[in-house]
Nucleic acid binder design. Structure first.
Lengths: 230, 230
DNA sequence: GTTAGCATGTAAGGAGTTACATGATTTT
DNA sequence: AAAATCATGTAACTCCTTACATGCTAAC
């Protein structure tokens, strides 16, 4: 019952697909990697993790155990962690499968504001045609919205005061801007080129590798004096 | 208890301040005038109206007087449920006072994403210094956010795949754009110049001049074949 | 004479938040 | 030794949505 999280569930599965993590770190990642769009609290994260485990999509590994028997402790400050986690969550095969299915399911939800952001964040794990469907779906959704806004504006212009008008103007410009962004992305996908920030002021010094495939990274997670949502 | 709506309550009071309305129209206005930011359904609107009445901020006026040709037909159940009651909601003195207080209360809520949009929509009913506080509060909120995003990006750049990176880049640009917009608005407020008076032919790009507090248009509201949220 | 739009509501529930409660480990 | 941060959780509540239920009135 309950906990049918849409976005949170999706994001958790997606992050855990990349590597196992415990709740605390998961939450930090949620609020930085995808955090522009959404911020989550423990109050929603932990219950969500719980039900994902219940459904068999995650396993818990209590690795805080072993209070008694402890022969060698060479792994303490050896390589990566340094910190030990209490409960490490890990994606099961079923969970992976489920996430894959969610990824390829391009229902009309997929282009709603918040859904779209999270989906985009996991585009690296999707096939190109799914990406295209989502990008185009999102774009036409925004174009619909634009049309309505224009119509509404034409009808009611006289009755609105300057601030309301300015608000609407700015809102429309934002939407137009996102449409242009999407169009660029779609074009990039279509021509099969790699993703490169085009009109940016400061082009990232990064060589884009393979856009179609594996985000394969796992290094030592650095101490990370990470932020919290203010 | 319950129904402590933040945004919806505020918006309803604000719209009713301009003129009395019944629920159906109210909802349309909510979803067009302020609709870029929020969409509300009847399921939240009507209960909200109810509690606002309970608190003495609104009055209901059951429209019963339907002067039709057949004089006997209308008074079947005249007082309470005439013909399918059309209820016009109207702001009371207390409600007006309460709204005024909400307007001038520039707590740290006022610059959160959705709150800000709705507040801005009613800027015409506020004093200049309140407007300034809200605009500047919003801007520094966004600048904080930008700083965090930059820091987080610098820390994690290598671990992110191209799509996540692009998402973050676009998000940051959006925020930067809003900051520039706010800066312009603040400047306009500060210099106090009201650009064009607005009664000449077609002033192309409109800036919010000084609304001075008066949105005093109320004419015959045209039939309005208005849209619904798709 | 039936669809389409106007108009008002309710019950159930979804998706999250806040505030609380607790304790371990590191840093100062 | 105190403060900060890491780490996990729960209960109560908020605010809104969906789906349902009803009925009027204009238009095609």
């Amino acid at each position: 019952m309950s906990r049918r999280s849409g976005i949170l569930e999706f994001a958790v599965l997606g992050l855990l697909r990349e590597s196992p993590m415990h709740g605390y770190e998961l939450r930090k990642r949620l609020n930085t990697s995808l955090g522009v769009f959404r911020a989550f609290s423990y109050g929603s994260l932990y219950p969500c993790l719980k039900t994902l485990v219940e459904r068999g999509w995650l396993t818990e590994e209590h690795e805080t155990a072993a209070p008694s028997q402890e022969g060698e402790r060479q792994d303490r400050q050896a390589s990566l962690t340094g910190r030990r986690a209490k409960i490490v969550y890990k994606l099961t095969a079923a969970g992976k499968e489920h996430f894959e299915e969610l990824l390829s399911h391009t229902g009309p939800d997929a282009w709603e504001d918040e859904h779209f952001g999270v989906r985009f964040a996991f585009f690296g794990q999707t096939s190109r045609d799914v990406r295209m469907r989502v990008l185009e779906g999102r774009r036409s959704r925004l174009e619909e919205r634009l049309a309505k806004m224009r119509a509404s504006l034409a009808r009611t212009r006289e009755r609105l005061d300057d601030y309301t008008l300015e608000l609407q103007r700015h809102g429309m410009e934002s939407v137009e801007r996102e449409v242009r962004w999407l169009t660029e992305l779609i074009e990039t996908e279509r021509t099969g080129r790699d993703l490169e920030a085009g009109d940016d002021a400061v082009p990232p010094p990064r060589r884009p590798g393979d856009a179609g495939g594996r985000p394969r990274h796992r290094g030592g997670t650095p101490p990370d004096p990470s932020d919290d949502t203010a």
